[in-house]
Design a protein around this nucleic acid. Structure first.
Length: 280
RNA sequence: CACCAGCCUUCU
């Protein structure tokens, strides 16, 4: 039955939930009990294809049939609520799971904190962050990345710096994504010089810029209409051993289109296949 | 290190 769950999982991740459900039907027909994992996976699949109502119904069905949702179930539903813009419902479910005797763990808090940060509700996110720490749950790099993202997006650089120092105190190592978040926020504010300093700091701490780092920087230059430097960054990416991806090309093509250099944009479109990239 | 939930870049 692991096999069938794996099958369901791959269908769910390729936007073919209906096939996933036919596998589910097969499990039932064979007289087997679906597991928590089966339900969790199907619920996620429904959310991934935007069928949030059906996901909620399946969640209820699962409960009615005597399956006690576990932390992953709650995590899946909370993430689905978050992604469909239902912040309040997500927070309510956080409380409800506690009432039902399932303690929220780091992933659950992290999910909601990220969601609140993306909605620019950084204060609320920080409150949950404190609550979590009070309960003795140790933060990790992921939850810090979300908080740093949220604070930088609002231009609260001081707070972001505090968070970075906190990570240092707790011996939580910054990852590429942490740096990418900083680079992105700086670029979007037009502070490219500082963004480049962050990239330098990244190399200094033993992490190499990756494709997302370069894409972010290229986008920063595009926002300034500086296609020369954007293309230089592209070259630096290739030279630095990073594979450009479809986003790299989308960024440059968009940059050229915006300043009416359609010929250059079309040339890039032609060049994509050289790098093994297919337009999306 | 392989059945399920959290973090970064483009467009929409």
């Amino acid at each position: 039955f692991l096999t069938l769950n794996i099958l369901i999982n791959s269908f769910c991740h390729s936007n073919q939930v209906d096939f996933a459900f036919s596998v589910f039907a097969k499990i039932l027909k064979l007289g087997h009990e679906p597991s928590h994992v089966t339900f969790n996976t199907l619920i996620k699949g429904l959310y991934l294809s935007g069928r949030t109502d059906e996901a909620a119904i399946l969640f209820e069905k699962m409960v009615h049939n005597g399956y006690k949702p576990n932390a992953v179930t709650y995590g899946t539903v909370i993430q689905g609520l978050c992604k469909s813009g239902q912040n309040a419902a997500a927070v309510q479910l956080l409380w409800k799971m506690e009432e039902r005797g399932c303690n929220p763990n780091l992933v659950i808090y992290s999910t909601i904190i990220d969601c609140l940060c993306k909605s620019e509700l950084v204060i609320e996110a920080s409150n949950l962050f404190s609550e979590m720490k009070t309960k003795g749950i140790m933060p990790d790099v992921v939850v810090y990345n979300s908080l740093i993202h949220g604070t930088c997006k609002l231009g609260h650089w001081k707070v972001a710096t505090l968070l970075l120092n906190e990570m240092k105190d707790k011996n939580i190592k910054l990852r590429e994504r942490t740096f990418n978040v900083l680079v992105d926020s700086l670029c979007k504010e037009g502070k490219i010089t500082e963004a480049k300093l962050v990239i330098k700091g990244m190399s200094d701490s033993g992490l190499e810029p990756n494709t997302v780092t370069y894409n972010t920087l290229m986008h920063g230059y595009c926002l300034q209409g500086d296609m020369i430097r954007a293309q230089n960054a592209f070259e630096a990416m290739v030279h630095g051993g990073c594979r450009p991806d479809v986003v790299s090309f989308n960024i440059l093509i968009h940059g050229f289109c915006k300043i009416n250099r359609l010929v250059d944009a079309l040339k890039l479109l032609d060049d994509m296949h050289i790098y093994g990239v297919v337009p999306d």
